[in-house]
Every structure is written in structure tokens, then in C-alpha cells.
């Protein structure tokens, strides 16, 4: 079958844009069972704190589409921070270690150990940001059903986005500590896109960590960006730039700029690299619809926007990029 190519005409494009913008920005309907914002903020903060301030060890399962992975985790609080270790129990031998000084990824493949610094210490169950209270501005929060996960009682906490720029989340908070025992990311129809759940967990114990108090010396492959090469005219509500570094990418020559925009829960990456030839504008989507990508030319640069976010978010960021005057 010959693919049909659709192009919006000058007459229809503004109409369609009006529809998309209005529907994306309309708030969720008023519902009596959504928590007041101050209560929602307090609950989110309690869950965020629990994942860092509690000592626990256990095994959790990650499932996305047809893929499933099991990981062992141990966590203990160190001062106001955490020290955690994740180890993949199937597939490629992989570990993530997080300490106060940073986060490290260790991958053992073909008899070789590869160590890379990570730019972030985020992992289940520590998914909420350190300051989780602003999330109540962008998500409606309500308490759901009681459930049982890994032998512990918990209560579902539903985070419903107030607009079309983020996915929804359903967490199950342990009844006493509020530690998330399960986390499900859902699309606008409530269909699960990715889920984590503890299979077993021991709370309150101070696990013996195999990690050294400090991470091994690994050269930092990222350095801060000096002077922005593009202008982002506008970001979706609640999003701000949380990272801007120059770094190398795995198995790729040369450096790219890697920016990250986030509302605290949703993260979208922007990669900028010199492009000798103008690139075609291409949209990508993962099979489950969780990840969206757009590559386009911005001045002399190739911009790739990628995130586990709705298409509207990636599109809004991509379309608001503007080349700064002059070459870098």
C-alpha cells in the first residue's frame, strides 16, 4: 500500500493547533476526592523522604511492555542523603551505586568491566524529587484502594496530571512508613506503561553494603555547558532545566550537549550536536508509546529531544527551540 502523506493546510492548521493547545492545558475536572494541595504536597514529600531516609533491602521487578527485569536493592540513610546499590539479577551484569558523592554505573560485558558516572541518582523506589511539594501543582493526588505488596500493607496514591504534558502515576505507599512499594506509570487512559513492584523487602534493617564509602575514581565524562547554543523560548508548565552538560555518548565519537528538563517526575532530554548537513525532521515513538523522540535541525545544530513523556511535551519543547545568533 502506498503511504499517504498528509499536510495541514494554512486553513486547517490553526484550527487543529487551537484544539490541541486547549485540550492539553485544560485542568482535570474538579473531583471531591482529590486531596487539597497542601495535603497532597505533604503526602508526596513523605513518600519522597521515606525512599531515602529509611534503611531497607529487597528485590523488585521492573516491567515495561514485554520486557521484565529483576533487581536487588539495598539502601541506607547517610546523614541527609542515601547510599544505595542496585544489581540486575538477570541479563547483563549491571550495578548502579549511589553515594553522597555521586552515582556510578558498572556494566560487566565480555569479561570487561565498564564504569561510567551517572548524572543522577534516581531509581525505584526513590522516584520522587527531593522537594516533592511542587508536584501538587501539576498532579491531582487522591488516595486509592488498600493493597498488599511483598507481604506488606500499602495504600494506592494516584497522581493524575492536570494537563497533557505528563504521564500519570499510581504509587502504593507502605501504610506506616509511606515507602513506595509499587509504582506504575500510566497513560491518559490509565494503561500501564511501566511498573515496578517489590517482590520482597526488609524494612528498618541497616543492610551491610558492599559499596566502598566512596566511589572508585572514574573520570567525569560530563562538564558544565558554558553559554547556551540554543534558546528555549517556552517550556511546558512546571518544567525547568535541571541539567546542562557537555558529554560523550556511549559508542559515539565527539561530544554533545545534554540538557534535561523536568517537572520533578517527568524528564525530557535535549541533545545538541554539530550537524554538517541539515537533518530531516523525524518523530520516533516506542512500541508502548511511553518514550517519544523528535530530531530536527536548529540553526547549525542537530537537536534530538527524547523523554518518557507524552508527545505533546516533546513536541512543545522541540518547536520552541531557536538558534542563537552566530556559530558556537
Amino acid at each position: 500500500m502506498t503511504p499517504r502523506r498528509f499536510v495541514l493546510s494554512a486553513r486547517t492548521a490553526p484550527r487543529r493547533f487551537t484544539c490541541l493547545v486547549v485540550l492539553a492545558l485544560l485542568p482535570l475536572p474538579a473531583a471531591a476526592d482529590y486531596l487539597p494541595r497542601h495535603e497532597a504536597a505533604a503526602l508526596l514529600q513523605r513518600m519522597a523522604d521515606a525512599s531515602r531516609r529509611l534503611a531497607y533491602e529487597g528485590v523488585f521487578v521492573v516491567q515495561s511492555g514485554g520486557e521484565m527485569q529483576t533487581l536487588a536493592i539495598s539502601n541506607r540513610p547517610i546523614g541527609g542523603a542515601k547510599e544505595s546499590r542496585l544489581a540486575a539479577m538477570d541479563g547483563v551484569q549491571r550495578e548502579v551505586r549511589c553515594t553522597q558523592t555521586g552515582s556510578l554505573s558498572l556494566v560487566s560485558e565480555g569479561g570487561q568491566l565498564r564504569m561510567e558516572r551517572r548524572l543522577n541518582s534516581r531509581h525505584f523506589p526513590d522516584l520522587l524529587p527531593q522537594d516533592a511539594t511542587p508536584l501538587a501543582n501539576w498532579y491531582g493526588v487522591r488516595l486509592g484502594e488498600f493493597a498488599r505488596v511483598a507481604g506488606l500493607d500499602c495504600r494506592q496514591v494516584e497522581l493524575t496530571p492536570r494537563d497533557g504534558f505528563r504521564w500519570g502515576h499510581v504509587l502504593c505507599a507502605e501504610k506506616d512508613s509511606a515507602l513506595p512499594l509499587k509504582a506504575v506509570m500510566v497513560n491518559e487512559r490509565g494503561k500501564p506503561l511501566m511498573q515496578y513492584a517489590f517482590a520482597e523487602i526488609r524494612l528498618g534493617s541497616a543492610p551491610r553494603m558492599n559499596t566502598a564509602p566512596t566511589l572508585p575514581e572514574v573520570p567525569d565524562s560530563a562538564r558544565p555547558v558554558v553559554g547556551d547554543s540554543v534558546l528555549v523560548k517556552q517550556l511546558p508548565p512546571g518544567f525547568s532545566r535541571v541539567t546542562a552538560v557537555r558529554r560523550t555518548l556511549p559508542n559515539r565519537p565527539g561530544e554533545v550537549e545534554h540538557w534535561v528538563f523536568s517537572d520533578g517526575l517527568t524528564h525530557v532530554s535535549l541533545f545538541l550536536e554539530n550537524s554538517p548537513r541539515p537533518v530531516e525532521t523525524v518523530r520516533g515513538q516506542s512500541k508502548q508509546g511511553m518514550i517519544h523522540l523528535l530530531t530536527r535541525q536548529v540553526g547549525p545544530l542537530r537537536a534530538t529531544i527524547l523523554g518518557d513523556a507524552p508527545w505533546a511535551t516533546v513536541e512543545a519543547i522541540a518547536m520552541n527551540l531557536e538558534a542563537r545568533g552566530g556559530e558556537r
Partner: peptide, 21 residues
């Protein structure tokens, strides 16, 4: 490479997802 770099911030510790362009 982009997905791998984004993993530092994403929730997943997963294999490369199947993408359609």
C-alpha cells in the same frame, strides 16, 4: 546512544525499547 544517556534520569534500567519512526 540517546536513550542510554537519558537513562541517567529516566526510571528505567531496561533494554533499548523498540522504536518506530
Amino acid at each position: 546512544a540517546y536513550v542510554a544517556a537519558h537513562q541517567d534520569f529516566a526510571q528505567a534500567v531496561m533494554a533499548m525499547p523498540e522504536m518506530q519512526f
